[in-house]
Design a protein around this nucleic acid. Structure first.
Length: 204
DNA sequence: AAGTCGCTCAACCGCGAACCA
DNA sequence: TTGGTTCGCGGTTGAGCGACT
């Protein structure tokens, strides 16, 4: 039993997995009326069969009205790299400097994009270059920052450029739309935050 | 067309910190 | 001070989807 939570993970009453639109609406409506915080009691009071933890995560990472969705901009990417070089994996701290971005989003972005490319870059670096200076170590919290003051595209070694194409910067066509949920025509199974918020406002 | 692979990201888990009675 | 509860963080997992074979 997880003593940190009011509910146990074995509790059949506790729902896990993806949130439904109905659950989202309940959570949004409840927070709109009562405010956020005290997540365990909030979950109970709202009638959600979720842990407080799950509610908090859902709200902070997805439902909050000020959450920015869409691709990370070059400026944001640059900032993430600078701050990561300074602080390491302090995602929440980094997220505070990127308005509308969540720690989870930044963490995922780092792991799936930046870290992967940095690893590849550094390995190709080590293989073919003895006089090049490795300017960044993904895991080194105290690594030099000064040379990081540019996006990956420009600080990467020449041998690395070719593989940057898929990593090239893409500006979001609609920053309010989640890339995974509303990026195509048939969103039968998904809903955008605009949908949810318009429904919530209608209920409010 | 079907199967496989790789990538992305939402969500979960475990732990330590903070808070409170 | 102590023990219980809640919060917040960082690491990890797994479903979904597109690309590739």
């Amino acid at each position: 039993m997880d003593k940190k939570l009011g509910n146990t993970s074995h509790d059949p009453e506790v729902r896990k997995g993806p949130w439904t639109m109905e659950e989202d609406l309940i959570l949004i409506t409840y927070i709109a009326n009562h405010g956020e915080g005290v997540w365990n009691s909030l979950a109970k009071a709202a009638g959600l069969k979720r842990t407080g933890k799950s509610c908090r995560l859902r709200w902070l990472n997805y439902l909050r009205p000020d959450v920015r969705r869409g691709n990370i901009t070059p400026e944001e990417q640059l900032l993430i790299m600078e701050l990561h070089a300074k602080w390491g994996n302090r995602w929440s701290k980094i997220a505070k400097h990127l308005p509308g971005r969540t720690d989870n989003e930044i963490k995922n972005y780092w792991r799936t994009r930046i870290q992967k490319h940095l690893k590849q870059a550094s390995s190709s670096f080590q293989q073919q270059s003895s006089n090049s200076e490795i300017i960044y170590h993904p895991q080194a919290c105290t690594s030099q920052v000064s040379t990081m003051a540019q996006p990956i595209e420009t600080y990467s070694p020449p041998s690395y450029q070719g593989m940057l194409d898929p990593f090239s910067i893409q500006f979001p066509t609609n920053p309010h739309h989640s890339s995974c949920c509303t990026n195509d025509d048939d969103n039968n199974n998904y809903w955008s935050m605009e949908d949810i918020w318009s429904m919530q406002l209608a209920n409010y």
